[in-house]
């Protein structure tokens, strides 16, 4: 994700547990409701399976599990953010989409150094909001080929 200075970013904010996260809107293709996924054999725990997105077989990534929150038990309330990562289209399972933000580059602060490995890998910055903080997630590392191969 390019982060040019003095540029505004449009971001989609969503909730995982009690925390707020967001991704660059340019990566997002659509947002849809949860559908039963077909589990895949030999998949990492954070891959929920595959669903049918108008004829495309779409892998579903449990973003909560990916960020280290533990597996999500999906329900009708959960949503799937369909995002483009590189040349692949994937679905990100999150609890709910909360907002669309427009922020300037200057309001994105570098992520504070915390010990959590997953946070260090995926959280590229934080945005302060009135009484809240939103973490900007970089999708680039969500589907690393190496990790997928390892998991195989």
């Amino acid at each position: 994700m390019t982060q040019d200075n003095d540029k505004t970013h449009e971001l989609i904010a969503f909730r995982i547990g009690a925390q707020q996260f967001c991704v660059d809107i340019r990566a997002v293709r659509e947002i849809r409701g949860w559908a039963m996924a077909t589990p895949l054999p030999q998949a990492p725990t954070w891959v929920k399976g595959v669903i049918n997105l108008r004829g495309t077989v779409l892998p579903i990534i449990d973003l909560g599990a990916r960020l280290g929150f533990g597996a999500t038990e999906p329900s009708q309330r959960h949503v799937i953010i369909v995002a483009r990562i590189g040349d692949k289209t994937v679905g990100l399972l999150v609890e709910a989409v909360s907002d669309i933000l427009t922020v300037g580059s200057e309001s994105i602060q570098p992520a504070p150094d915390v010990s959590c490995e997953a946070v260090r890998c995926f959280v590229k910055g934080v945005i302060a909001q009135e009484a809240d903080m939103i973490s900007l997630v970089s999708l680039d590392g969500i589907l690393p080929e190496a990790e997928l191969r390892e998991a195989a």
Partner: peptide, 27 residues
């Protein structure tokens, strides 16, 4: 026949995927 590799990767033991009449994916 639908490709699994297009958005995911090859899975050993699984040749591809398909979509059944009920709209769900079957391997």
């Amino acid at each position: 026949i639908k490709s699994l590799e297009q958005n995911y990767r090859q899975v050993s033991g699984i040749a591809a995927a398909t979509i059944l009449g009920d709209g769900r994916v079957a391997l």
